Computed example of a mutant assay.
Amino acid sequence: MDTASVSVIIPYSRADLIETVLEKLSQQTYPADLTEIIIVGQPGKTVEEQWSTHTVNAASNMYPGQKRNQGARIARGDYLLFLDNDCEPAPDWIAQNVLELQNPQIGAVGGQIKGKSNAFFARCLDFSSFAFCQNSQRSEMQLCSASLGVRRQIYKEVGGFNETLRVCEDIDFCYRLVQLGYRTVYQPAIKVKHNHRRDSFKVLMAYSYFLDAHPAYTSSFYIPP
């Protein structure tokens, strides 16, 4: 196993979920002294003090790509691991990311993102919006930034995330990596539980119409050459 340093970058938006995510990160099998955690947003001083994290202040209305780039600018790790604050990583989440990223041909790696709730409408969302990152077969494909790892030098080479995109900045990121000759790999051994809490018909429809309002969501999927 590589013993390189890792920066976990979390765009913050949900106060009631962040501490659960940080608790899971504190239980990682990867060496804690090689790991830094960067929260981008305004989680409050208590979170930073209790969990030994770095905080980058960011306005709540900033796009996810903007927040991820802000965190990456101060990151010191050899690997940048992006994690949404509603995703609970498995104990070997960091280790599995690092293991896959040791291959120099891989530009980015994504993981299996399974819904935490078994409620009917929550499962509807899991399959309608995240089915491509719930199977059990390793493959080359577009990745979801809810769990996405990249080597820092490659992140810089590709220029980070497109800050003008409100959605699909992860698909755009993967597309540009492929254009540079890198592979983007879905690795189901990298696992998170997605606590999205979209478990009612009303919330599911609001989320679906939000995505439909952005044509890039349906037009940007691609198959790497």
Rank of each mutant, 00 (worst) to 15 (best):
residue 1 M to C: 10
residue 5 S to E: 05
residue 5 S to F: 06
residue 10 I to T: 08
residue 11 P to F: 08
residue 18 I to E: 05
residue 22 L to W: 08
residue 24 K to Q: 09
residue 25 L to R: 03
residue 25 L to T: 07
residue 29 T to P: 03
residue 29 T to F: 01
residue 35 T to G: 01
residue 39 I to E: 05
residue 39 I to S: 04
residue 39 I to H: 02
residue 41 G to T: 02
residue 47 V to A: 10
residue 47 V to R: 06
residue 48 E to H: 05
residue 48 E to F: 00
residue 49 E to A: 15
residue 49 E to Q: 15
residue 50 Q to D: 15
residue 55 T to D: 02
residue 56 V to M: 13
residue 56 V to E: 12
residue 61 N to P: 01
residue 61 N to V: 05
residue 62 M to L: 15
residue 67 K to S: 06
residue 68 R to E: 02
residue 68 R to I: 00
residue 69 N to Y: 08
residue 75 A to D: 10
residue 79 Y to C: 02
residue 79 Y to S: 02
residue 79 Y to E: 02
residue 80 L to I: 04
residue 81 L to W: 07
residue 90 A to V: 06
residue 92 D to G: 09
residue 94 I to H: 02
residue 100 E to M: 10
residue 102 Q to D: 14
residue 104 P to N: 10
residue 108 A to Q: 01
residue 114 K to S: 14
residue 115 G to V: 01
residue 116 K to L: 12
residue 120 F to M: 11
residue 124 C to R: 05
residue 124 C to W: 11
residue 125 L to F: 04
residue 127 F to P: 00
residue 129 S to V: 14
residue 132 F to Y: 11
residue 132 F to M: 10
residue 133 C to W: 04
residue 135 N to A: 09
residue 139 S to N: 14
residue 140 E to S: 14
residue 140 E to G: 09
residue 140 E to H: 13
residue 141 M to L: 05
residue 142 Q to A: 08
residue 143 L to M: 08
residue 144 C to V: 07
residue 147 S to F: 02
residue 149 G to L: 03
residue 152 R to M: 05
residue 153 Q to I: 10
residue 155 Y to F: 15
residue 156 K to H: 12
residue 161 F to Y: 15
residue 162 N to E: 14
residue 163 E to L: 02
residue 166 R to Y: 08
residue 167 V to T: 12
residue 168 C to H: 07
residue 170 D to Q: 06
residue 173 F to H: 01
residue 177 L to E: 01
residue 180 L to N: 11
residue 185 V to S: 02
residue 186 Y to V: 09
residue 189 A to V: 08
residue 189 A to D: 14
residue 191 K to E: 13
residue 192 V to E: 10
residue 193 K to E: 14
residue 193 K to I: 09
residue 194 H to T: 09
residue 196 H to W: 07
residue 197 R to M: 12
residue 200 S to D: 13
residue 204 L to W: 15
residue 205 M to F: 09
residue 206 A to T: 13
residue 207 Y to L: 09
residue 207 Y to W: 09
residue 208 S to T: 13
residue 209 Y to I: 14
residue 210 F to V: 04
residue 211 L to E: 10
residue 212 D to Y: 08
residue 217 Y to A: 07
residue 219 S to L: 07
residue 220 S to H: 04
residue 222 Y to W: 11
residue 222 Y to K: 09
residue 224 P to C: 10
